[in-house]
């Protein structure tokens, strides 16, 4: 390619791509943390929430021709409902939960959801229009899509909403109390079962948002869940499992590293970057880059 692109504008281009992907991993990672904090379980269906978000949004905007804000809202509600149903029908009925069993259950749900997505939306990938046009903006020789700005902006809104919710609402504080010490919270009169349901709802909602905002860029199909989920999980672990700000930072890091690897090395093996970072971090600093080592030693999921 003989673009005028200098080294710097290439770098900038990769950075934009990294931020955009990273935002998605950040959101998925936050989703893992919410459920992890309330149940101690890693939800393997997290990636499927993203897929359902994306595909539902495609149907509502491209087929049903709803306006983007309305479709956005309906999609998030729809996927949140899936999260709630998942908790009520597959997690709550388990009498003596052990972590291995719960994890296998979430694996089973994830492939069921994947199968359903295939039945409803077929095997092809789905195009969706960008929120506000796809004319790129030029920044120092690199191009920036308006959708990228939407993605980063929405991540910011979600993070702020997250902080407000967990620090300033009764429900949010109760959820945090449950995460810290479930028995004590129960003694204080908090219904921890409802908290678990709520965590699935929230986590599914956040997953849906991730799917909605990324679909215009990657074109969603039913197989995407596993890899998106894996990278989000990587972000959650590298950020320190249970620590949502850590997940956001690590998600961004993942996205950027991945984009750089794709740009400077080879796009084929881009997906290996996430696993590589995950393994290295597990090996040298299992508490994550932003977690406390002492807490992680005792932590199990």
């Amino acid at each position: 390619m003989d673009q005028v692109g200098s080294g710097f504008s290439d770098f900038l281009q990769f950075l934009f791509m990294g931020l955009q992907r990273g935002s998605i991993y950040a959101l998925v990672g936050m989703g893992y943390n919410i459920i992890y904090n309330s149940t101690g379980v890693i939800n393997f269906a997290q990636g499927e929430f993203v897929v359902f978000g994306g595909l539902m949004m495609v149907t509502l905007t491209m087929t049903a021709n709803l306006s983007i804000p309305l479709a956005f809202l309906l999609t998030v509600l729809f996927v949140t409902l899936i999260g709630v149903l998942m908790e009520r029908f597959t997690i709550k009925p388990v009498k003596n939960p052990n972590v291995l069993r719960l994890i296998i259950i979430t694996i089973a749900v994830s492939i069921l959801l994947k199968g359903m997505a295939m039945c409803f939306w077929g095997k092809g990938s789905h195009y969706m229009r960008h929120f506000t046009g796809s004319d790129p903006i030029e920044v120092f020789g690199a191009t920036l899509l308006p959708q990228t700005l939407w993605i980063i902006g929405i991540l910011a809104v979600v993070v702020i909403g997250f902080v407000l919710f967990f620090n300033h609402t009764m429900i949010g504080k109760s959820m945090r109390a449950c995460a810290i010490n479930r028995d004590a919270a129960r003694l204080a009169g908090i219904n921890d079962r409802n908290m678990v349901m709520l965590s699935f709802a929230l986590s599914a909602g956040i997953g849906a948002i991730a799917g909605i905002i990324i679909t215009p860029i990657i074109q969603m199909d039913y197989t995407r869940g596993a890899l998106l989920g894996l990278k989000g999980f990587g972000a959650a672990v590298v950020g320190g499992l249970g620590n949502s700000f850590g997940a956001v930072a690590a998600g961004m890091l993942f996205g950027i590293m991945e984009a750089m690897a794709a740009g400077y090395i080879s796009s084929h093996y881009m997906d290996a970057v996430a696993l590589l970072i995950l393994l290295i971090v597990l090996f040298i600093r299992p508490s994550g880059l932003f977690g406390s080592a002492d807490a992680a030693r005792l932590r199990e999921f």
């Binding site: 994890i103 894996l230 672990v237 597990l282 299992p286």
Partner: peptide
């Protein structure tokens, strides 16, 4: 890396390896 720790990191690590 995954099995030195408690928990089920292996499931994700093997998923990534498989991919």
């Amino acid at each position: 890396p995954s099995l030195r720790l408690k928990g089920h990191y292996l499931a994700m690590a093997t998923l990534g390896f498989s991919a």
